[in-house]
Amino acid sequence: MLSRSAQGLYWIGRYLERAQHGCRLIADQFETMKDRPVDEIDKGWRRLYLGLGRAPVGGELRSNLDDEQFMLVDAFTLADDLTFEPGNPDSIRNSLANARENARQVRNVVDEDLWSCLNLAFLEIRDVEIADIWRDRPNEFYRRTEDTVRTFFGIADGAMYRDDSWQFLQLGRFVERAQLLAGLIDAQLSVYPAGGPRADRGGDPDWLSLLRICAARDAYGRLHSLQFEPAAVVDFLVAEPLLTRSVRYALARVCEALDAVSAGRPLLVEAGRRAGRLAASIDYDWPNRDPGDDNANRATLREIGDSCRRLHDDIDAAYFSYGMEDSPDA
């Protein structure tokens, strides 16, 4: 397919995944705010910002742990920053707007129902402000917004022709997912060191919340009888091949998509080789780690994140922005 169309679909996938991730993070933080002590709420925000690699408004989190009222006002500002802030390129609204703008540009290769879904979501969120959603139940806003993304992928899953347009949409979605998950788990280990003293590790609720963000609570519970052992949770979210929000699962989808768009010869392009290596390292190297060595594990997670960023460049070079001399037909 036309490179620019493929690129548009790839970015739709990335931006929608980003918007959904943002919704899940904030919805979970609001859960925390319902009944957790202020220092837990504070840590929740830290994890959130660290995971996204973003500095909050004003450059750093300045919590006043003695003042619950302050924490609430603070939550208002922080949620606004992550949801609506025009200057935040990754805010939920900007992510949706960018997905929609990409769809508009390549609309001739986007199914009408998918376009309608995005266009309506965009029109709905375009003029909303944080005060509007704060007045009633903010959780519902995030749930509704996430539902938009789910609807989009539901329609895509059910109706899209499985040609390259589908594959590039998947590719964008799962490269983004792998990268976001690596960042989130890294942030979790930073705020709640798994190998540190018992007191620092965080309690069950902190690990439960991480599982909840990744829609992994029930699956984990069936396997581990709700023993929220940090190392087991981390391992589950990194390496579990059957969990849709695990790094390994995302990489498997990336490899599949690359396999499809390269006509079964993914190893001929650097993107295919890199994705394969990354998946293999989780299969073969990750199990040998020391679960108590947070520094080493965080370094590994950051490496996964970096690899995802390089993978993005590889995909761009191989399929979207290649020079004339690199063309297979040249």
Binding site: M1, L2, S3, R4, A6, D164, F168, V261, A263, Y319, F320, Y322, M324, S327, P328, D329, A330
Partner: peptide, 19 residues
């Protein structure tokens, strides 16, 4: 920018190369 002319022919840039 999606089109390339070379040797008297016009091609478009696709994910599978020039067409």
């Amino acid at each position: 920018s999606d089109l390339v002319a070379r040797n008297g022919f016009v091609y478009m840039r696709t994910t599978g190369g020039l067409q």
